[in-house]
Amino acid sequence: MFETIDIEIKDCIATLWMNRPAIHNAFNPTLILELTDALHRVAMDANVRIVVLAGRGKNFSAGADLEWMQAVGKKPMDENIQDARQLAEMLRTLAELPKPTVARVSGAALGGGMGLASACDICVASDDAIFATSEVRLGLIPSAISPYVIRAIGERQAYRYFQTGERVTAPKAAALGLVHEVVPTAQLDTAVALIVEALLKGGPAAQTAAKSLIQAVGKTVMSWLVEDTVLRIANLRTTPEAQEGIAAFLSKRPPNWAGE
């Protein structure tokens, strides 16, 4: 049994509840290790098809417990690094889980909480949800969560929000690509259930393969891919269509395929 995590399994859906509502489900070493363990358990459970991540109380997660962060900052470097590795491992376990994952976000999803939402495959948020990579305001950086947040919102947006620490509303988070659905708080569970229903229509092995495909395609750009893009544009701009399009732009007229 866990101290900081509740696991509810109904039919083939596992809901992992972060259960530290008095401090907004902030991370401490216990929660990090228990969530990692819980994720491994549901990953290995053949009866579980889909995993939903949620937070007890009004808030999803306020990120790292600052008292813990302050204490760990005073530890010897090897212990500091080990603590950081545990958080990174938890996030990676979530991001690479071989089953569909859905973040159920209400209230605050700050710092590491935003990282958890980003690491899930799908994010459904209530209209009162607030997101932020607020670490810079504490003299820190969103290091462990950065691969997943950047994957969700892109490098361009990360340059802004990693440096400003601005809070982002749920509709804005949807516009940035982090959130898939925004609904009134009273409809949050219904919206999650609809996503789960849609996921259950997919083949489990195919969904695992789909996740693997996305991860493979989304890796760092390789030299061969750069060369491929060079060849594509070089070939395309020699065609009559491209020549016409360029000429039309320079002449400030519609191209011949656009009509009058």
Rank of each mutant, 00 (worst) to 15 (best):
M1S: 15
I9Y: 05
K10T: 10
C12P: 05
A14S: 12
A14T: 13
L16I: 09
R20H: 07
R20F: 06
P21Y: 07
P21T: 10
F27E: 02
F27W: 06
P29R: 02
T30V: 13
L31A: 04
L33R: 08
A43Q: 07
M44V: 04
M44Y: 01
M44H: 04
R49E: 06
I50N: 01
F60M: 08
S61K: 10
A62N: 08
G63Q: 02
A64Y: 03
K75I: 10
K75Y: 05
D78S: 12
N80T: 14
I81H: 15
I81S: 13
D83C: 09
D83A: 15
A84V: 10
R85G: 05
L87A: 08
A88M: 08
R92G: 02
L94H: 11
K99I: 07
P100I: 07
P100Q: 10
P100Y: 06
T101R: 09
A103C: 03
G112H: 04
G112A: 10
G113A: 03
A117H: 05
S126L: 08
D127E: 11
D127T: 06
I130G: 02
F131V: 09
F131L: 04
A132S: 10
E135L: 06
R137Y: 12
L138P: 00
P142N: 12
P147Q: 08
V149S: 02
I150E: 00
I150D: 08
G154R: 00
G154C: 01
G154N: 00
Q157P: 00
G165D: 06
G165A: 05
G165W: 02
E166R: 06
R167T: 14
V168C: 11
T169H: 11
A170M: 07
A170E: 05
P171N: 12
G177L: 03
L178V: 07
L178T: 08
H180C: 15
P184E: 14
L188S: 02
D189K: 01
V192H: 00
A193V: 05
I195Y: 03
A198I: 06
A198P: 02
P204N: 06
P204Q: 11
A216E: 14
A216Q: 15
A216G: 15
G218N: 14
G218P: 14
K219T: 15
K219W: 12
K219V: 13
M222E: 15
S223E: 09
S223C: 08
L225W: 09
E227Y: 12
D228S: 14
T229D: 07
R232G: 06
A234L: 07
E241T: 13
A242V: 13
G245W: 06
F249Y: 15
K252G: 11
R253Y: 07
R253A: 10
G259E: 03
G259L: 07
